[in-house]
Structures are given as C-alpha cells and as structure tokens.
Design a binder for these strands. Structure first.
Lengths: 325, 325
DNA sequence: CTGAAAGCGCTAACAG
DNA sequence: CTGTTAGCGCTTTCAG
C-alpha cells in the first residue's frame, strides 16, 4: 500500500537518490530533474514516510513537551505559543502531562525519549525532584526548561523574573498606603513558588506574613476563609498566582468583604479570566508569547549545534493595575 | 551510539527474533530465555528504538489530536483527559492547533498523517469547511470526532447533547418565572454553536431573541453593552458558553446591573472559572472525563479492527444551578 | 550532478 | 519454542 520514493523515481526517470535529494529540497540537483521529480510526486500523490526518514536520518522533527497540567490555562497558553512557533518550522509537538508528580514526569520523559524527539521543552514540576528526569533527558537531547526550573541545574531556562514581578506588586501596594500585606502562595515545591515567596519576603522585609498552600482556587478560598477568621484583615492580600487570587476574591465576595475598599487583592500571571473577575484583578502579566518564542529560538540554537548555547533568560514581567488593587 | 537489540540478543545468547519477542512481551518464549533477555536489556541499559519498530510494524502508538485552540480551557481539559486515558495504554499524543482556520486544520491533519499516527481525534473547527480535512484523514486512519462534528459526515463522534442541555437551562429559567429570554451565542460556524442555537430556539419557541458573535469573552462584553443600550433588559441572558457568560457578567457588573436580581445569566460548559464568578455562574456541565474516556474507548474499537464500529454517542449534560441564574 | 549500494534497528514470515 | 532471512522506506556515503 502506498506509493514510495521508488515509484516517484521510476516515473521521473531518475534514481531514488536523486529523487530523495529533489524532494528534500537539497541543492545539487539539476533544475530539470528536480522538476521531473516534483511533478512525478504530485501526479502519484506521493506521501513521504517520515518514519522511514527518521530512522535513517536520526531526526524526527518532533519536539517533546512536558507540562504539569495542560488544563491549567497558564500552561495551556504556553503550549499554544510554543506550538505556533514550531509549526513555522515544520516541527510537531509531542505533549505529555506530569500531573505534578515527579514519578509520572520521569515516565513521560522516558516515553518521549523513546520516541526519539529531537529536543525537549520541559516545565519541571518540582524544584528538586524533577532533577533526575531532567538530567536523563539532557544526557540525550537538547533540553530547555520553560517557566519553571530545577535548582542548581546548569542547563538552559527561559521564564519570567518572578522576584522582579513580586517586587513591583509590593511597591505598588505600599505606594497606595497599604502597609499590612499578607502573601497567599504555594509551598515552594516548584521554582516559581519559591521565587515569588522570596520576592515577597525581600520586598516586604522582616516579619512578612505568609500563608502557603498550592496554586489552586480551592486553596485561595480556604486562605480567604482563614484570613477572615483571624478577625482583622490586612490591607492587601498578595497572591502567588491568579487562580489563588480568584479563589480569594470569591470567598471575600461571599462574605461581603469589599475589594479594594476593605482589602486589596493581587494576582500573578494575568490569565484570561483575571480581567473578568469582580473586581477586575490587578496582576503581573507574563509575556508568554515572548517566552515561548525565546524558548523555540534557543532550541534552534541547540539543534544547530551551537554547543555552549545553554543559558538562562529571565524576561521582565509587567504590572497590570486593575480595580482589585 | 546506542545499544541495539542485537547487543541484547548476543548478551542473552539468543537470536534477535527471540529477543524481540521477549522484549515486546509476546508469549511463545521459554521463561528462562525471557528472563535472560530482560536481564541483558537491563544490564546494557537498552532503549528500544521505536522509530525502527514503527517502520517495520506500521504502527506508531501515537494518536494525533487536532483542536481549535488549546488555550481555551474547555479544549485543554478535554486534551488532558484524552492524554491521561492514552497514557494508560502506552500511547502518546501528537497535538496540533487549528486556530479555528480550516486551512490550518487541513495542513495540520496532513502533518499528522505524514507522521503516521495510528488514529486521529479531531475537534473539527467548522461545521462544513472541516469536511475536506476530515475525509482525507478518515481515508487513511480511524478518526473520532470529539465535541464538535462536521455536518453530514458519517464517521464516529462523541460529545455532549447540546440541545438537551439548552433545553434544561431554558426550562429552569422559565420555571423561575423568567419569560423574556435572550440568547447570546456564537454564529453557527461550528456544530455546537449550531446545536445550542437550535436548542434555544426550540425550547423558547417562535420569536426567540438571539444575538450572535463568537465564543469569546470580548463578544460577551460587547453583547452585554448592546443589551444595556436597548433600554429594557430581558429576564434572562442565556449564553452559548461560559466564556461569553463571564464577559456578559463583567459588563453588567461594570454598569451596576445586579445579577440575578435585575437579570439572570447562564453559561454552558462549566469551566473551572464558572464557579468563581461573582455571582457564581449557573451553567451546564459537560462530563468531559466521560467524553474523553468514550472517545478513547471508541478508538480502541476502531484500532482492533471492529469495522462497523463507527457511531455517535451523545452524553447527557447536567444543569449546575448557582447564584447567577 | 547522478546512481548504486549499504544500511538505520526492528519485526514478521517462514522454516526448523 | 527458536533462528534465519528478508525487508519496512528512506537517506547517505562513495564512486563515477
């Protein structure tokens, strides 16, 4: 079943080698022959078998990508941007979820390597425990860490400057006269959680008030509840991401607390729903398109053999002031 | 570079055929030999080359999936569920976005077929114009339409019963005494838009009031604005999906309209942010996990050669009543 | 610039 | 149950 390059070559009256060269757009084929091959391919409705090509050429034109949870709109947007960038280069994206479990992540990485991806883009779900999977991958193919990173891993990374973002938020709130700030974030299992927590602490100084859970709306709701139970509210609630912030906002609204009059609330990421919240959420926008573009660019550099190409790029985020803070 | 099955076979003292059989878990290998092969593979740190296996066996254990926009949390959740299901079966997911453009969709389908995916799961972005790409795919591999479908295409589909969902919403609102309803939906370019519009019209009867745009929050905001400009608000605004509804809610809030006191608002899908809205959004929940599971199950049926396996499964959605309606 | 030939690493017939 | 053999369809030397 299926027409092969032999059929095309035969019809064009050339050898398979010439057909191969013409089809893959290599130079060094007489224009006349190239035309004949292309015409034959068109007439026969030839569909190259990329699996065979991959076996021989040892390159699959496929990039693996491991994300914690594609259902998270923040990661989904990142995946979408990466996919769009790759498409321009005729490459495909093999996607895997780690579900925030380093063991699953490791299995997924192995599966992608087995499929001989040319490179890997990874959002490592854990600051420390993703190290093993990452190292295993890096030993075989170029790897770019995206958004999150593993502590002390020397490879490439591109993401946002979390500490700078936090610092902007805190300065903004302090500028509005909010003095008592509390941070509602995630336990620092991933690098962004850690960096945002560090950023908050550094910006606020000693005695920073901190509540840690995970990056979920449920935790946001729970944290809101806990703050209300304490009696007096702080001036501002600085959240580790937008999802937490939306959870906090919904809990505050349920209890009749007015935002920003009674307390200010901020998020981080600027997911699409941030501006739809009531009140609209003040947050820090990540330049995702730019981050994805940079990642794919770095990939290109690695793939074209620039050996010492490994580096870290932290892109500055932008404070987006809306009604909530 | 790399140890091959030959090395494993040599070390185990058997032929490559036996090694292959042992490694792929086929029965018909003496237990003793199987052990020797597995041990040799472990000792040599053997990593099978699935590309070579694919070339020979003509199966890649890879499923292609084309979605309109992975950034949409509704589709993202569907992708996540499918991915989770596939993982259990040792299969991987090759992902592509159509960006709602039938031309892009067609290119993407072709790219996936070139990569010799075993089957395709497709959320066709257009009721009519996705037909060509779908037919091209179906001619080569099993195809399952997910969520959306192409008019008049005879193949398999699994999704939600949109008309039933709409009917539930409308009956619920009528039951609350809301008589003047307006539908804010998407122009029927995809099958769900069409079915939800049809469902609304059927449930409301003649003279149904309808505003059509697209499935975006921006359209929701714009539609809200337009309704406010008309002077008198309807009793209920039935939205084609949650994203539109969240847009409507934000616009109404901005103008000081109270929900549900002044007007009720409903959505469709129950995305994670629906319950965080102020007020929390009444909507129709799609059983996405179930839809994904059914799709993967159907895929299995097609792949194991059940020829006449093509069929349509419409899963009943569930009304989720919250504060907004 | 072109062709012949040699595999990439594996699985599937087919004999034993 | 096991081994031998023949490719899967393509790219890539290597000669010409």
């Amino acid at each position: 079943m299926g027409v092969t390059i032999h059929d095309v070559a035969a019809r064009a009256g050339v050898s398979v080698a010439t057909a191969s060269r013409a089809l893959s757009g290599q130079r060094g084929v007489r224009a006349e022959n190239r035309e004949k091959v292309l015409a034959a391919a068109r007439e026969l409705d030839y569909e190259p078998n990329v699996v065979a090509a991959s076996l021989r050429s040892r390159t699959t034109h496929t990039i693996g990508m491991v994300v914690p949870r594609i259902g998270n709109p923040f990661f989904a947007t990142l995946v979408e941007s990466v996919e769009k960038q790759l498409q321009d280069g005729q490459r495909s994206l093999l996607l895997a979820n780690s579900h925030y479990e380093p063991e699953t992540e490791q299995r997924q990485v192995r599966a992608l390597l087995d499929r001989r991806v040319d490179a890997l883009i990874m959002i490592p779900c854990h600051r420390e425990r993703s190290g093993e999977a990452l190292a295993a991958a890096a030993a075989r193919v170029p790897v770019i860490q995206l958004d999150l990173r593993v502590d002390g891993f020397a490879g490439s990374w591109v993401g946002v400057d979390n500490e700078a973002g936090m610092s902007q938020v805190v300065r903004h709130l302090l500028g509005l006269g909010a003095n008592r700030l509390v941070f509602v974030g995630s336990r620092p299992t991933d690098s962004s959680a850690q960096a945002r927590l560090d950023g908050f602490r550094r910006a606020v100084g000693d005695g920073a008030d901190v509540l840690l859970g995970d990056f979920s709306k449920e935790w946001g709701q729970q944290a809101g509840e806990r703050l209300l139970a304490q009696g007096s509210l702080p001036d501002g609630i600085v959240c580790g991401n937008d999802t937490i912030a939306l959870g906090v906002l919904s809990e505050l609204a349920r209890r009749g607390v007015r935002v920003p009059e009674d307390v200010r609330v901020t998020g981080f990421d600027d997911i699409p729903y941030a501006e739809l919240a009531q009140p609209a959420l003040t947050t820090v926008r990540q330049p995702q398109e730019q981050i994805a573009a940079e990642a794919v660019r770095m990939l290109g550099a690695h793939l074209t053999g620039a050996e010492g190409a490994s580096r870290s790029v932290a892109i500055a985020p932008e404070l987006v002031v809306r009604a909530s803070g």
